[in-house]
């Protein structure tokens, strides 16, 4: 029962924006990965990184995965 009380204690109006930001990052990174021609390293690796690593995954992809040329 303790877990239930912790969940209800947290104000979801406070946490929701964070979840939204994380969602946007993930979706934008995924769309970008599908549309881009080439990445640094194999595409499937970046797909795993974006989906599996929380918040940081999409950011790492944007910084290191994209090829600008």
């Amino acid at each position: 029962m303790e877990e239930v009380s912790i969940l209800s204690e947290i104000n979801w109006a406070v946490i929701a924006p964070l979840l939204v930001i994380q969602g946007i990052l993930l979706i934008v990174a995924a769309i970008d990965l599908i549309r881009i021609d080439r990445t640094n390293g194999p595409k499937w690796m970046w797909a795993l990184i974006i989906v599996l690593i929380n918040i940081l995954g999409p950011i790492i992809y944007f910084i290191f995965g994209r090829r600008n040329d």
């Binding site: 946490i15 924006p17 964070l18 930001i21 946007i24 990052l25 934008v28 918040i55 950011i59 944007f62």
Partner: peptide, 21 residues
């Protein structure tokens, strides 16, 4: 085009909000 206008503001928001929360 290289989505900097999307991810940089989002990352900055996360950074600013993380410690207070």
């Amino acid at each position: 085009r290289n989505v900097k206008w999307v991810w940089v503001p989002l990352v900055m928001i996360l950074l600013a909000v993380m410690d207070p929360l």
